[in-house]
Design a binder for these strands. Structure first.
Lengths: 349, 349
DNA sequence: GGTTTTGATGGAACCGGTTCCAGCGGACCC
DNA sequence: GGGTCCGCTGGAACCGGTTCCATCAAAACC
């Protein structure tokens, strides 16, 4: 409604002066600044960022690419980023891209090419070299959450190490018959979270002298990364006492909880008959007394915003090496894990 | 990088003609249109919506106000809206406003005043008259999801009727000792969902001749609108056999599932000892065999987008009456509900 | 005291589009 | 055959800011 010209007229100065007074750039005397600000307040002036960005090239808006909204980890990251961006005066524009989708090309060719953002945060979406190049050519910095992208700052936990840690917790309790239940390689997520966690699991098992090739030790089942996913595998895998392990490392808390529900329905005691450990620190974990390795998505979101805005402040010429920030996880021991029941096998006396 | 002037030069026409050719407005001969489009493609031209919106006033972007991201209903609505908007070529800018917050004023005074959107969808946030007025003054249409806002199109289910329906399902099975567990009035959500569902419950009970004032019949317990919330109340309320009802109507599936988990831990048979019904149609409902009243958040999101874009196409002068679109719910009967155990009371033979 | 520096301001160009208006040739009408 | 209408095009103004440049008075310098 009201433009800066109106403010200038009311304050009795030129547009240029009004602009300087309001933006704080360039020389303005104290008294005219006060005059202009008063005038602006009087008519309820709010600058149009569109007009400003047309000449400055800055939009005060950040684009976020994310494959899911409803899954816990992603919604937490999203919420924390939104807060952090709002605090810094940035808008957040959301692009929900279920990874393997025809939408994706369109978003890049059309939406992202419109350049309505100063930078991009990619959460759990591994961008291709072409896509990274496109953004760089547009002069738009990029920060990733969840895994490495070539030549891009990324914030993530160390999935291999986390999986090792979880597995080692079960091993240290005396378990040898351990199963990993997680996402499959073909699953929706890029960024190799699934395969990294599987790798960590296998390497911990191998280090403990438990070959993963033996039929019942250290095997792996894939499922959807959700509670019903875990529940389904749980019913299938635990149903047969012969194939039932003494402990399960689930790749996420939701899967772990699904497994616990399945176990309870089958009359299997947790942890006496079956120990379960997850990864996440999901808010439901406590009520299921789930032992878990907490990661902190909100911290990841905040850090990503910080990193991106810092890069916008003073762009650093970057080489091709990707800068990874590894965030710590912490083990929270509840009562879903214990040593194996001694009567179960003769593996140890 | 490349502006429309470059396209025009390459095609050998004036800026005005190039603009007409690309936007499809106004007279352009077929051959020049082809020439211009070819030129645009050649240099990879993408129009700057900022520049365009400066003169047209349209931004091709919609603002969404939402109190939660991580709760099921909201994330579903969000996902469906994002899809629908993308399909229509709109960006979505997200404002996450936990309702009673100091942020809220800031968002309205600062972010929304920047007018970087053509319209607003408010999901589960009841806007004040002032806020509605502000948006109308800016010429920005508004659509609500979840409950009525004065003078605003709103899409929602009929919470009173839904609660009635759920309660009547329990009544029809022969239950008389029914408890409602839901959100409290002071809770985070505006839009009276909580109180509406409570109203529906009470009125169904009253119609069945079960006064809600009697000590054990038709009472109500408040909890957080989450699974742990339901779990907590479940442990407290079901722990004492004297106060335990034969059936519970939970205001959401998450609460209902929390109750079922609590019941199982307490050794209470569902549905033999306790029937449970929820509202939502949550993806976890099936694995807990929860009888529920499905609502369809994705449909609500799609309809809201449709309504808003239609309003943008041809603005209808509106009176003060608020236009409510009521969406249907459907009862999905699983095995968490049955008649009360006959030995339990002597209410009926 | 004359010259340079510094602070403050206004005029005008510019960002990248859209749209109004004028002009022009050809088809159509009487 | 002259006037009107229609389709098409280009020039120019405009949207709402920012910023470059010129101007000018006062302060600082030698």
């Amino acid at each position: 409604m009201s433009a800066i010209a109106d403010v200038a007229r009311l304050a009795g100065v030129a547009k240029a002066t009004a602009s300087r007074a309001l933006s704080g750039r360039g020389y303005v005397s104290e008294q005219t600044r006060i005059k202009v600000i008063a005038a602006a307040r009087e008519i309820g002036y709010v600058a149009s960022p569109n007009a400003a960005s047309l000449v400055t090239g800055r939009t005060k808006s950040i684009g976020v690419i994310i494959p899911f909204i409803s899954r816990w980890y992603f919604s937490e990251v999203l919420e924390s980023m939104e807060q952090a961006l709002l605090d810094e005066g940035y808008d957040m524009t959301l692009y929900n891209l279920p990874t393997p989708s025809p939408e994706r090309e369109r978003v890049f060719d059309y939406f992202l090419a419109r350049k309505r953002f100063d930078g991009v945060i990619s959460v759990g979406v591994a961008l291709s070299d072409d896509e990274v190049t496109l953004l760089h050519r547009l002069g738009r910095p990029l920060v990733g959450i969840g895994g490495p992208i070539r030549g891009v700052d990324t914030i993530a936990i160390d999935d291999v190490a986390a999986a090792r840690l979880a597995t080692e917790h079960l091993l240290s309790l005396g378990h040898t018959d351990i199963v990993h239940i997680g996402g499959s390689k073909e699953d929706e997520m890029d960024f190799q979270v699934h395969s990294n966690r599987l790798t960590g699991f296998y390497s911990a098992m191998r280090d403990a002298g438990l070959s993963s090739s033996s039929s019942s030790s250290g095997s792996f089942y894939a499922c959807e990364f959700t509670m019903p996913g875990g529940y389904g595998v749980g019913l299938a895998v635990f149903g047969d006492p012969r194939t039932r392990p003494t402990a399960v490392f689930a790749a996420s808390d939701e899967i772990a909880i699904g497994l616990i529900v399945a176990a309870r329905e089958l009359g299997i005691q947790v942890p006496a008959d079956l120990s379960v450990i997850g990864i996440d620190g999901h808010p439901y974990a406590a009520m299921f007394r789930l032992t878990t390795l907490e990661q902190h998505p909100r911290t990841q979101g905040r850090l990503a915003v910080q990193a991106l805005l810092a890069e916008l402040e003073n762009p650093t010429p970057r080489g091709d090496e990707d800068h990874l920030t590894r965030l710590p996880t912490n083990l929270v021991i509840r009562s879903s894990t214990s040593g194996p029941r001694l009567t179960h096998g003769v593996d140890r006396g």
